[in-house]
Design a binder for these strands. Structure first.
Lengths: 116, 116
DNA sequence: GGACATACCTCGGATCACAAAGTATGCGAC
DNA sequence: GTCGCATACTTTGTGATCCGAGGTATGTCC
């Protein structure tokens, strides 16, 4: 991935994952697929990115993982759901992201007249 | 600064600096002040962040620095201006940032109905 | 049976923001 | 004159997070 793109992503991945899990619990592979599809390919995160992040979020008490056998498959999957703290963190991240976007717009879209 | 906020900023600082220098050449301290004021304090970057970034941008050939004595002060200041490649990079960063914002909105603001 | 998708796991490398510590000087208050 | 602060620049180590490579395992399709 483009180097600078990677930098922009830092901090975003957690926001995206928490957001998706705020909607419903998902297993790792499903998270990755859902992100790729919802973003039209913009967020094509690797397993090496998402699984370590899920473990970190679990260690911080923001998510809870549990193995579950789905009805539609014989495969074992580890589903992740938000904890109460995770739900709070999800909201906080959305707010922080929104504030960043506003702040960026203030600088990037300031009318040139204001530059004086 | 809030830990997660720092992560969000990664990649943004370069975008902001290149953008301001695309408007007009500035010296380091002025860049810092302008960012803080334009963003209403949201981007209160330290000298330890901005100066190393300016050196990196110069090393990559995106900016050019030169010492200059201003008329209004006896102090020496190092002004930075964009090179041709730097101007191109500034545009590219704005575009990448815009694409990220769009992609984030696609995921974060998808109607719940679409979730199915 | 082999390739690929599915599903998960681990670890080292790269990058960038932060902050601390530093030097230097001009200016205003005392 | 001295002190504190703002102004202006410089250097370096740390921490966090994304990436990708490499790994295991299994189900499905050809």
């Amino acid at each position: 991935m483009d180097g600078k793109r990677t930098e922009f992503l830092k901090g975003c991945t957690e926001t995206l994952v928490l957001h998706l899990l705020a909607e419903r619990a998902m297993y790792g592979y499903e998270l990755i697929r859902e992100l790729r599809e919802r973003s039209g390919g913009a967020f094509d995160l690797g397993q090496g990115t998402v699984y370590p992040l899920l473990y970190t979020l679990e260690r911080r008490g923001l998510v809870k993982g549990r193995w579950q056998q789905s009805d539609d498959t014989s495969r074992a999957r580890k589903y992740y759901g938000l904890t109460r703290r995770g739900a709070a963190a999800a909201s906080a991240r959305i707010g922080e992201w929104g504030a960043l976007v506003v702040a960026m717009a203030r600088v990037l879209e300031a009318p040139r007249a204001a530059v004086r």
